[in-house]
């Protein structure tokens, strides 16, 4: 926010939290749908309840944690290649 700006809906942290909860609700609803839709898949175990939800969540969390470790190894100052 800057002085003189009109206040936007997203400027209120409570609204952002509301969106975040709605996202959870929508996500869990797609898992709930697995109870009613029998998904067919080329890979057998992918038909398990909520398989893609679990894989997507775990995949992203592991990816970000690994990337955090990678940053410790490879991060340098922005002008690293400039001075030679």
């Amino acid at each position: 926010m800057k002085a003189g700006d009109k206040r936007r809906w997203l400027d209120d942290p409570a609204n952002v939290t509301l969106l975040y909860r709605l996202l959870w609700a929508a996500g869990l609803a797609t898992v709930g749908l697995d109870l009613f839709v029998s998904r067919h898949d080329d890979v057998g175990f992918a038909e398990w309840l909520g398989y893609y939800a679990a894989y997507g969540f775990a995949g992203v969390v592991l990816l970000v944690l690994a990337a955090k470790g990678l940053r410790r190894l490879v991060a340098r100052a922005e002008d690293y290649y400039d001075d030679r």
Binding site: L23, W24, A26, G27, T30, V31, D34, G50, Y51, Y52, A53, A54, Y55, G56, F57, A58, G59, V60, V61, V64
Partner: peptide, 10 residues
């Protein structure tokens, strides 16, 4: 499912 939960993960 994949999309919602990947976004939720982030």
């Amino acid at each position: 499912q994949l999309l919602f939960f990947a976004v939720l993960g982030v």
